[in-house]
Computed example of a mutant assay.
Amino acid sequence: MSLAMLFKTHWFQSLLAFFLVLGASFDAWSEARPERLLLATQEWRPYQYQENGQMKGPGIEKLKCIMRVMQQPYQLTMTDWDRAQILVEVGEQHGFFLASPNSFRSKYADYSASVMSQVWSWFSLSDSIDPQSEMFKDEVVVTAIFGSNKWFWLHKAGYRVEKKPRQSVTLVELLLSGEVGAVLANDFVMEEAIKSLGVSHRAITRKVMKEKPLGVYFSKKFTKQYPLFISEFNQAIAQCEER
């Protein structure tokens, strides 16, 4: 084979390799993001709620900031909390928010960095309760929002959980009626519920338990299809915190 033919063959192979790499790059870019991100959530005042057909609250505003930074089209669906998680597990939604991490959710979804934080506290009508005591666990009926991380935690820790409230105001009502002796709830959410019912804060006592992060869970199917998405999402969280 002549030198000219060798050069031509080498040039053709190099050009072919370049277009293959370029094509792969375009494919990778097209798969880097979904056309529209589908996220499910719950009405959880004051973090996120609907008013006059609009979704509002600090959780919604934080998510909007993240989507603006990423320039990512999105769609939010507000539904029951347990249904929001099931929709992600079966693949009908890409993720759910605001959520704290637990081992069950992590079986089918991957967790983002913390978007916001929350404080878990015990609320009761008596300041003498000891939620850590075995007597309390054996004798006092307690609850939390059904399907929440707190609700599952109570079950796992061995507390008597006999109610399945789906609204934060229901937690207050169960407490005031004596149907439960204590509830485990988010400080921010419980304060809003107490205020909305016109109940005096002095009537209900609070004992701080711990602080937990709140983030977004994305289905493992989604993160497998878009492996760079959570990293970019987390970077956008950091940028929104600086604003």
Score class of each variant (00 low, 15 high):
Met1Ala: 12
Leu6Pro: 00
Phe7Glu: 02
His10Phe: 15
Gln13Lys: 14
Leu15His: 01
Ala17Asn: 04
Phe19Thr: 12
Val21Glu: 00
Phe26Arg: 08
Phe26His: 08
Asp27Arg: 07
Ala28Asn: 01
Ala28Met: 06
Trp29Asn: 08
Leu39Ser: 01
Gln42Glu: 15
Arg45Asn: 05
Tyr47Met: 12
Asn52Phe: 05
Gln54Leu: 15
Lys56Tyr: 04
Lys56Gly: 02
Gly59Asp: 12
Ile60Trp: 11
Lys62Asp: 05
Lys64Gln: 15
Met67Phe: 11
Arg68Lys: 14
Gln71Glu: 15
Gln71Ile: 00
Gln72Pro: 07
Pro73Leu: 03
Pro73Asp: 04
Gln75Thr: 08
Leu76Tyr: 08
Thr79Glu: 10
Asp82Cys: 00
Arg83Leu: 11
Arg83Val: 13
Gln85Tyr: 01
Val90Gly: 00
Val90Asn: 12
Gly91His: 09
Gln93Asn: 03
Gln93Glu: 11
Phe97Ser: 04
Phe97Pro: 01
Leu98Ile: 14
Ser103Thr: 12
Phe104His: 10
Ser106Phe: 00
Tyr108Ala: 04
Ala109Ser: 12
Tyr111Glu: 03
Ser112Gly: 07
Ser112Asp: 05
Ala113Gly: 13
Ser114Gln: 14
Val115Leu: 15
Met116Arg: 12
Gln118Tyr: 03
Gln118His: 04
Trp120Lys: 10
Trp120Pro: 00
Trp122Ala: 02
Phe123Val: 07
Ser124Cys: 04
Leu125Tyr: 03
Ile129Ala: 04
Pro131Gln: 02
Pro131Asn: 03
Ser133Tyr: 01
Ser133Glu: 08
Glu134Trp: 01
Glu139Phe: 03
Glu139Ile: 03
Glu139Tyr: 04
Gly147Val: 05
Gly147Asp: 11
Ser148Glu: 08
Lys150Met: 14
Phe152Pro: 00
Leu154Arg: 02
Lys156Asn: 13
Ala157Asn: 12
Tyr159Ala: 09
Tyr159Glu: 08
Arg160Asp: 05
Arg160His: 04
Val161Pro: 00
Ser168Cys: 02
Ser168Leu: 03
Leu171Arg: 09
Leu171Met: 09
Val172Asn: 06
Leu175Ala: 10
Ser177Leu: 06
Gly178Arg: 10
Ala182Phe: 11
Leu184Arg: 10
Phe188Val: 13
Met190Thr: 10
Met190Ser: 06
Lys195Ala: 14
Val199Ser: 05
Val199Phe: 05
His201Cys: 00
Ile204Val: 13
Thr205Ala: 08
Met209Val: 11
Lys210Pro: 01
Glu211Cys: 00
Pro213Asp: 07
Pro213Arg: 10
Pro213Val: 09
Phe218Pro: 03
Ser219Gln: 05
Lys221Ser: 15
Gln225Ala: 15
Pro227Glu: 08
Leu228Trp: 11
Phe229Met: 05
Glu232Cys: 01
Asn234His: 07
Ile237Val: 14
Ala238Leu: 13
Cys240Ala: 13
Glu242Leu: 14
Arg243Gln: 15
Arg243Tyr: 09
